[in-house]
Amino acid sequence: MNVLLTGVSKGLGLIILKELLKNNHKVFGISRTKTVELEKLVEQYSEQFVWIEYDLGNYYDIKSQLFKYFKDKPIHAYINNAAIAYDDLITNLNIDSLLKMYNVNVFTPMLITKYVIRNMLLFSTKGSIVHISSISVHTGYKGLAMYASTKGALEAFSKNTAREWGEKGIRSNCVVVGFMETEMTSALNEEIKNRIYQRTTLKKPVDKLSVAKTVLFLISDEASSITGQNVFVDNGTI
């Protein structure tokens, strides 16, 4: 399966990348920076892993820079994982930070979806799209209103993508992730983290591998009847 995955350099994206490679998928992985770990993976999986340098804040060059790789290649799955988190109280909202976050988290993924669906139509692929969403959309946390709003937008976009293109066999789902230990949450202090984890049934951070395996399941044929859904991988957040 040819998989387009964003945000491969660290955190959840890196774990999804490794799972995809382990399961013999061909991955076109996007990030701004090429870490030592990515270099090793490119070497180890030279036939399977194509690393693409791209800044997802730039929505002008998506067609020319990203989709030049897929002129003669079908995309079977698109995993929208890359995101930035701008957190602050609403009373401090800064429009430039908000716009930057919307570009990366919402507008660029929407445009990538446009070209992914076009590719799926050209190759008559019954493909699958998975967006990584956040439990903050559904529970709400102090300081995450702006971030949660970008993920809420993605959930709506995903549901409507599913309705619009279901007839062509194209599926779209969201994986709604609870709090994990990643760079994105590393800025939170221990007290806040513990309070967040106490708000889950399992009383601990979400296992990134469990999230990655859910994503792999959703793009597989085993999930062929699942579309337009939000799948919660959140330790049972209350």
Partner: peptide
């Protein structure tokens, strides 16, 4: 409309 979308994509290719 779905057919027209596919038509567009195939003509563009």
């Amino acid at each position: 409309s779905l057919d027209l979308a596919e038509l567009t994509v195939r003509i563009e290719a």
